[in-house]
Structures are given as structure tokens and as C-alpha cells.
């Protein structure tokens, strides 16, 4: 099966800048295959990204691509989508980009339920700047700015998204690219704010410092810990803190992992359609236009 559409890639811009073993390439390829699969026309697709290693993906994709400022990609994308409602907009962000500096834009995009597809490449670290902790660095893990392990608790991106109002949320991993592709297809089909958290690897700035082994070891570990949400007891549980689920999941599955190591629930975590913002805006606009036409004429009276 060849679903990677070459025309969607800027092959002359390759090789990419990512380190060997980086998960960004796997996620980017899944995104390209997903866009091919849903059958969007090339000209209707726009990719917006922030700043970080992951956000460099935009430059390799042969669509209209907008590489913006750190944390602000969703705000740029909001303007773009409102201006060109026909566009299918994918917003590629890093974990720091989306949930630290861009956290405010993230919850408000979710609240509006604007039809954007947020692809968050979660490598648990600030990759580009060399390994500082992010709001997605698991408690206790080391970073250059948390040499003894971070005391801060991490976000659960999808819990954040669901409580802020997003209408589709899924978690995939770089270790299961086909599943990830399927989840991105699901996001593209949802009319509203969709979030796909793509668990990924940064062997250079995260793995090495936390003794997680090679890139392959890291991917293997992610794969082992991944549990399909369908296998977990009820859907409601998947939006609870991962640590709880990890404990239960480990018991149920008879996992051998240390209790510290969490299972990663993967699959569609929530899907709950609701009216979409841009569509509602334009529908209101047409009504307003009809209503105001008479009034406008009066105001427009001219004198020489």
C-alpha cells in the first residue's frame, strides 16, 4: 500500500534537519498519509506551525505552509481559517509550544471549537533549545533546567482539551504510525477543534539524560506501554489522570512495568460533536447582511 503522496512533500528540501532517531519524521509522514487518505485537495490544505524542532515539519510539506512564532500557531491559524473558511488547516506544534507559551491559545481554540486540527508532537521536552523541561515532562524526569528531576506535575493534554471544549481528542504514538495516521484522519473528519497528541521521541535532549536508551529502545518502550482505549474499562477513565489509569491498567493487563511507568492510553479518547465556530460565524453573517441591507442604504446617503 503506497499512500504517501510524493507531491505532498517538498523532496528538494530534504534531508531534514532532525537528529537521527527523532520521532518528528515519523509523525510528519503519518500526517502526510492521513491527508492523502481523507482525500483533501492539495490546494485546500494549509499547515501552520509554531517554533521548535517539531514545527519545522511545515517546511517539508508541499502545501501552503505558515511557520509562525513560538506558541502562537493556533492564533495565526484562527485568523487564517476565519479569512479562508474553505481551508483545511493542520497546526503542528511541540509540547512546549502548544501547552506552555501557547497554552492560552490552546484552551481558547478549544473553547471556540474552531475547525482546526492540532497535531501536538509530545516528546516531553524542549528539543530545539537543548532539553529544558516542558509542561509535558513527567514529574521526576530530568532536564537541563531540572537536573535532579522536575518537581512539577505534567499536563494531560487531552484532559485539558476536553474540558476546554475540544470536540475530538486522540492519542497516538510514533511507535504505531498506522494508528497515528488513522487518528489524524479522524481529526480531519471532525468539524471542530481536534487534538491529536502524538507521543514521540527526542533521544538527544530527553532520552539520553533520562537513560532511556537508544531511539529504538525509546520507541519500543512507548509501544509496550501503549494500551488501546477500547481495552481500558470505560471511556470515562481515559480522561482521568494517567497515573491512576496506569495503576489500574497495569493490574488488569498484568503488566510488568514499574508502577512509576504509566500506560499510554492510545486511540480516540473523546469525540463529541458540537457546532463549529467559523461555520456559525458565516451563517450569522449572511443573516445580518440580509437584515441590515435596508438600514445601510440610509446611512450611505451622500452629498456632493
Amino acid at each position: 500500500m503506497k499512500s504517501l503522496r510524493e507531491e505532498f512533500l517538498r523532496t528538494n528540501k530534504l534531508p531534514h534537519i532532525w537528529c537521527p532517531g527523532c520521532g518528528n519524521g515519523i509523525v510528519t509522514a503519518a500526517l502526510v498519509r492521513a491527508i492523502g487518505k481523507v482525500g483533501f485537495e492539495q490546494k485546500d490544505v494549509a499547515v501552520v506551525s509554531g517554533i521548535g524542532c517539531s514545527s519545522r515539519a511545515a517546511g517539508y510539506l508541499n502545501f501552503n505552509t505558515l511557520h509562525t512564532t513560538h506558541g502562537r500557531a493556533l492564533a495565526f491559524a484562527t485568523g487564517l481559517k476565519l479569512a479562508q473558511p474553505g481551508l483545511k488547516v493542520f497546526v503542528v506544534m511541540g509540547d512546549g509550544d502548544a501547552t506552555a507559551i501557547g497554552g492560552n491559545h490552546f484552551i481558547h481554540a478549544a473553547r471556540r471549537n474552531i475547525d482546526l486540527n492540532a497535531i501536538i508532537i509530545n516528546n516531553h521536552i524542549y528539543g530545539m533549545t537543548g532539553g529544558q523541561h516542558s509542561p509535558l515532562t513527567p514529574e521526576g524526569k530530568k532536564a537541563t533546567t531540572a537536573p535532579e528531576g522536575t518537581l512539577e506535575r505534567e499536563f494531560n493534554i487531552l484532559e485539558l482539551a476536553v474540558s476546554a471544549g475540544a470536540t475530538y481528542g486522540a492519542r497516538g504514538t510514533a511507535a504505531q504510525p498506522r494508528l497515528l495516521e488513522k487518528l489524524i484522519v479522524g481529526a480531519s473528519q471532525n468539524e471542530g477543534f481536534s487534538v491529536v497528541e502524538a507521543m514521540s521521541t527526542c533521544p538527544v535532549s530527553y532520552g539520553r539524560r533520562n537513560r532511556l536508551g537508544s531511539a529504538v529502545d525509546m520507541l519500543k518502550d512507548i509501544k509496550q506501554r501503549s494500551v488501546s482505549v477500547e481495552k481500558l474499562e470505560t471511556k470515562a477513565e481515559t480522561t482521568r489522570p494517567r497515573r491512576d489509569i496506569a495503576e489500574e491498567g497495569a493490574e488488569e493487563e498484568g503488566e510488568t512495568h514499574d508502577k512509576q511507568e504509566e500506560v499510554i492510553p492510545v486511540g480516540v479518547i473523546f469525540s463529541r460533536p458540537a457546532p463549529e465556530f467559523v461555520e456559525r460565524y458565516y451563517r450569522g453573517l449572511n443573516k445580518e447582511k440580509e437584515g441590515k441591507e435596508g438600514k445601510e442604504e440610509k446611512e450611505g446617503q451622500v452629498e456632493s
Binding site: 501552520v48 505558515l66 509562525t68 512564532t69 502562537r72 492564533a75 495565526f76 491559524a77 484562527t78 485568523g79 487564517l80 481559517k81 476565519l82 479569512a83 479562508q84 481551508l87 492560552n104 491559545h105 481558547h108
Partner: peptide, 19 residues
């Protein structure tokens, strides 16, 4: 559109101009 802050306002304006 009223955005969540001025940073977003500026970003959205640029996004719309690109559109």
C-alpha cells in the same frame, strides 16, 4: 473576532492577511 489577548490579536490579523 475578540481574541484571548493582544498577542493572539496580532497573530490572527497576520493569519487573516495570509488568507
Amino acid at each position: 473576532i475578540q481574541m484571548e489577548d493582544e498577542i493572539a490579536g496580532m497573530a490572527a490579523v497576520i493569519g487573516a492577511a495570509v488568507g
